[in-house]
Design a protein around this nucleic acid. Structure first.
Lengths: 354, 354
DNA sequence: CTGTTAGCGCCTTCAC
DNA sequence: GTGAAGGCGCTAACAG
């Protein structure tokens, strides 16, 4: 039904081996026959059969990018950067890779399923982005799966999640985000402004990102001798706006005298802001608010959101290059991406009366 | 090197055909041998070879979702919905499809490249989301490519773009968005409030979405007899925040007396708001602002953004079902998705002095 | 219900 | 520089 290599060979009056050589380009072929073959390809509108090619060559041009939530710009920005380095459109010739993003929805099972599907396809590389779920058995399953992928020749890159497995030489190259340090600096900023009762709104407790950011926050509190009562001032939810909204109301109920709320990401922070506004509280005069990630909309919020900037675009691009083998592995296989405090208008000293 | 079907067969003491049948599940196998095979699979940690399977069966489990900008929530939301219907994680058994999103960056060449790559892989289905680029030769190329994909058995679904090709019976199932009608109702809303000088900020001129929304806007103006000067009040840019910011300043330069600005999407509208604020203009007291799409952040903006709601989630889900053949094709192969005006706080009557 | 037998379309030694 | 031939791992008829 579809036109095959043999059809092209017949039309160009050469053997199918020659056609294959012309197309893959990594073998000497006379200019004359090359032209003839190319013309036949064009006339017949031939398209390489990927599966057959992958079967024979034992490799494929598929690269998988796993994200927790494709509708969240945090992941969209990273995925976009990864993909721009991988290709799927820049050249017409070789090195053509199909970069493809898979949405796990934050579910461990789906993550594993996608990994298996990618393994089935003999993917050339896999990039896992964002925090991991910390269930002990699941973590082990993922580590094992990644090990098998690596063993089968698939390049594995982690971007924004901590190194997998305990071994010093993990199978995966890792770009870790400095979540702990960033969160700590953010809370220090709040403390320096004079805040003493700081609410904290975060995501699911079983995610590495959640844990690390919370640890940074607590570390800053500990240094200031404010660890007592921290538990009461912490609310877990999911990483979305609605969750931030509800959590802010809950915090206000628990501690009506709080003067600041730090959120584990910008999207939550937006929900917090909305809740405060609905309660008639002014930002930052009555309550200061801070986020994390510095997504594009954060600078545009009213007031502009104080947050911690993560170079998502740059990190994604680097992950892409790593996945393509176009950049050297960092020493020890792990590089940590720095985060920067962006102090803006949503944070200020607490009200005088406090 | 990797463990194959034959290995499993040997261990389970059956033929490889039996193993294949157990795994695909669409053939009667005795419970006893099935269990034996499954155990062998497990013990050997066997993973199906996708390319080999696809080659033999002449189909693959890959479904491609093409988006113009993966970092834009508009596409993220649609892609997420499509993917949730396709799977890649719900069941463990059959019907397992690898839904995969490809970021074209709005480039016609990359779109074509991805289509070819997907064709190579013998994709089960392809979903194209968002507006198309209107270059005549490119449109023809895409239509031709889609025709070939469909001919090869790939299901083609368009979501948020107009039907491809002129033929009544196109190869693709289409879910078109009511961009024209929505834009028209939005501008009518502005006119009803009393605005007479309405700026319009939109995206690249060669996109179908841009054209249809602009046409709707102009249609409303025409009915009100305000078409003269519409050209001067229109600025083209790209579909992002920065573009909206710049365009708003440009409009203010051209017509300092305008009383409203409509944007071709919410992201642009946000940029417009930022520019107006920076110029010391109040929204909506001095200038009304409206967007399009009703993305999640629009309701949270300050003031809440008047916009046109498109049921992105529902449309994406439907596209996913269509791609899986789990929903009947609409009559004529085309369904139009309604849009709804969401009048919120960012629009109000123009200032008295006007 | 299960085994046997052909390929699917391409890549890749190996000869020429 | 080019052709011939075998096999990658799996599925899909056929038999039995």
């Amino acid at each position: 039904m579809a036109v095959t290599l043999a059809d092209v060979a017949a039309r160009a009056q050469v053997s199918s081996a020659t056609v294959s050589r012309v197309l893959s380009g990594n073998y000497p072929v006379s200019e004359a026959t090359r032209a003839r073959v190319l013309r036949a390809v064009d006339e017949l509108d031939y398209v390489l059969n990927g599966p057959a090619s992958a079967l024979a060559a034992a490799t494929s041009d598929l690269v998988g990018i796993l994200v927790n939530d494709i509708a969240d710009p945090f992941f969209g920005i990273i995925a976009s950067a990864v993909q721009s380095e991988i290709g799927g459109g820049q050249r017409g010739g070789s090195g053509e890779k199909l970069a493809v993003v898979c949405n796990t929805g934050g579910s461990p099972e789906r993550e594993l399923t996608y990994l298996t599907l990618l393994q089935r396809q003999r993917a050339a590389a896999v990039v896992l982005t964002g925090g991991a779920v910390e269930g002990p058995e699941h973590a082990a399953a993922v580590t094992a799966k990644l090990g098998r992928l690596a063993a089968a020749g698939t390049r594995v890159v982690l971007c924004g999640r901590p190194p997998a497995g305990e071994e010093p030489a993990s199978a995966a190259v890792t770009l870790a985000f400095d979540n702990r340090g960033g969160a700590q600096r953010l809370t220090e900023h709040l403390l320096a402004l004079g805040h003493r009762r700081i609410g904290y709104v975060t995501g699911p407790a079983d995610r590495t990102t959640t844990r690390h950011r919370l640890e940074g926050h607590r570390a800053a509190l500990a240094t200031a001798g404010l660890l007592a009562g921290a538990e009461e001032l912490t609310v877990h939810g999911s990483y979305d706006r609605a969750s931030g909204y509800d959590a802010a109301l809950e915090l206000l109920r628990r501690r009506p005298d709080l003067t600041a709320i730090a959120a584990a990401n910008d999207t939550i922070a937006l929900g917090v802001c909305a809740a405060l506004r609905d309660r008639g509280l002014r930002i930052p005069q009555d309550v200061s608010v801070a986020g994390f990630d510095d997504l594009p909309f954060s600078a545009d919020a009213v007031p502009a959101l104080t947050t911690v900037r993560l170079p998502l675009q740059a990190a994604g691009a680097r992950a892409g290059r790593l996945a393509m083998g176009r950049e050297a592995t960092p020493p020890g296989g792990v590089a940590t991406i720095r985060s920067d405090l962006m102090a803006r208008a949503s944070t200020a000293p607490p009200p005088e009366k406090a």
